[in-house]
């Protein structure tokens, strides 16, 4: 694995999964994983297996629902979709991330050594 890939911050995977489901509608685990990789341009270091732990967490909180269905190649697969509560959570989390990244951007934009003047 290339060292330049991004390690996922705690909690970010959950948000990515929620956003993916919100944008794409019902998906199975592999679909979610691939979608995240594609969107990130393969810049994220993702152990695809960890998706399933994230799915359990989200399901327990009632933010996503799951049901067994048939996938495109006619195989049994578990499909996940975002719930109403999940959408609400997603908008809250997205706003939080937006603010955080704004702040981080501004902090990091401070010129070096500016406090010496």
């Amino acid at each position: 694995m290339s060292p330049s890939k991004l390690d996922l911050l705690q909690g970010t995977l959950d948000l990515m999964v929620l956003q993916t489901l919100a944008a794409m509608g019902p998906l199975h685990g592999y679909g979610i994983a691939r979608r995240i990789e594609q969107v990130s341009g393969d810049a994220v270091l993702l152990n695809q297996g960890t998706i399933y732990a994230a799915l359990v967490r989200l399901h327990q909180r009632g933010w996503i629902s799951a049901e067994w269905g048939t996938s495109t190649n006619n195989r049994k697969a578990k499909f996940y979709s975002i719930t109403k509560r999940g959408r609400k959570q997603l908008s809250e989390d997205a706003a939080y991330w937006q603010r955080l990244s704004d702040v981080m951007g501004r902090v990091l934009a401070l010129p070096e050594g500016s406090d010496n003047k």
Partner: peptide, 11 residues
Amino acid sequence: DAQMSHHLELA
């Protein structure tokens, strides 16, 4: 296990 094998098959 079922989800995982499905996942691997697709991959």
